[in-house]
Amino acid sequence: MIDKIVQSMAEAMADIKDGSTVLIGGFGAVGQPNALIDGLIEQGATDLTVAANNAGVGHVGLARLMELGRVRKIICSFPRSSDPVVFETLYRAGKIELEIVPQGTLAERMRAAGAGVPAFYTATGVGTKMAMGKETREFDGRAFVMERALVGDVGLVEAWEADRWGNLTFRESGRNFNPVIAMASNLTIVQTQHLRELGEIDPDHVVTPGIFVDRVLHVPYGDPTGF
């Protein structure tokens, strides 16, 4: 019997190694796997490369992980937030590496990773700082820049519903990066608001099929708050 549901955070976080690349879902506070980020803080892996849309808010979650000196490099599109104090302090002190990626390129790099596409060409960023040092090539008279796939050693995902095979649904704008992170990561760990019996989720409504998911932890925390 396949059962991807784990009973504890320790089980969910098992075997995450130092030096891992960790992809984290969420946009604003919505669809962000806060419990799993806290679990990663607890678990202890360090020298991490983290890819997420933002670079943490206040002193909790991702910001806390960075504050503890566990993040070597952050890959994101928008390192500003209502309170980016931790990131900015580390960045100014030269204690964290930053790779700025246009938001659509970030999502596409994850999708490409999930689809086995090692690199792709995009018009986004052509003629800007984003294209510096990257191959550009013309197709049908227009210039494109080559971007590499972004594979996660670990993906942290928040779902609305999950079953023991790892089939997932998402809620409203909580979907955001989560499905592509599930595809792009070698070890996809999911926190879900609701556990469903196998067959209970309408197959037509499954957004992320279980093949992309490794572990599911039930975290019924309610509604997202704050950004």
């Binding site: 599109s77 900015e88 700025i100 246009p102 960023g125």
Partner: peptide, 15 residues
Amino acid sequence: DTAPAVGGAMDLAAG
């Protein structure tokens, strides 16, 4: 700029 933040602007402008 200490922490440049591009978001989706480059995708929107080019796409």
